[in-house]
Amino acid sequence: MKKIGEESGFSIIELMVAMAVMLIIMVPIFTLSRDALRTSATAFELADAQQNMRTAQEYINRDLIVAGDGLRSVGNIMLPVAFVQKYLVRAPQTGGSSLAALSIITPDDDGSSTSTPPGVLPGTDRITILSIDPSFTPISLPSGAIVPAGANVSVTTADVSRFQVGEIYFITSQYGATFGAITNISSPSSQPNLIFSNSDPYQLNDPGNNGAIAQVAYGPSGPGKGNKSVPATLMRVRIINYFVNDKGQLIRRVFGVPRPVATDSGFGYADSVIAENVTNLQFRYQLNKTDNSGNLLPPSSQVAVSDQPSIRQIEVTVRTRTQRAVQVNNGMRPELSATTWTSVRNMQFRQALQP
Rank of each mutant, 00 (worst) to 15 (best):
A262H: 00
V278G: 05
N241D: 14
N280D: 09
S265W: 00
V254I: 13
T279R: 14
V257A: 03
T290Y: 13
D271K: 12
I274A: 05
T290D: 03
Q249C: 03
G256L: 10
V254N: 01
F255N: 04
F267P: 11
S301K: 01
N280T: 13
Y269A: 06
V273D: 08
S300V: 05
D246Y: 02
I251Q: 13
L297G: 02
F283Q: 06
N241K: 05
A262F: 01
F243W: 13
V273W: 05
L297Q: 10
N245F: 02
L250E: 07
T263R: 13
Q286R: 01
S265F: 05
R284P: 14
A275T: 15
F255H: 03
N280V: 04
V244H: 11
N277W: 12
Q286I: 01
V261R: 01
L297Y: 13
R253C: 01
Q302L: 01
G248S: 07
R284W: 14
R284A: 14
S300H: 11
N288V: 00
D271P: 05
T290I: 08
G294I: 00
A304I: 02
F283G: 03
N292T: 10
F243M: 08
Q282M: 15
N295P: 12
R253A: 02
N245C: 02
Q302M: 14
R284I: 14
V278R: 12
G266S: 09
R253T: 02
V278E: 01
L297F: 13
V273G: 00
T290N: 02
Q249T: 09
Q302V: 01
D291L: 01
G256M: 09
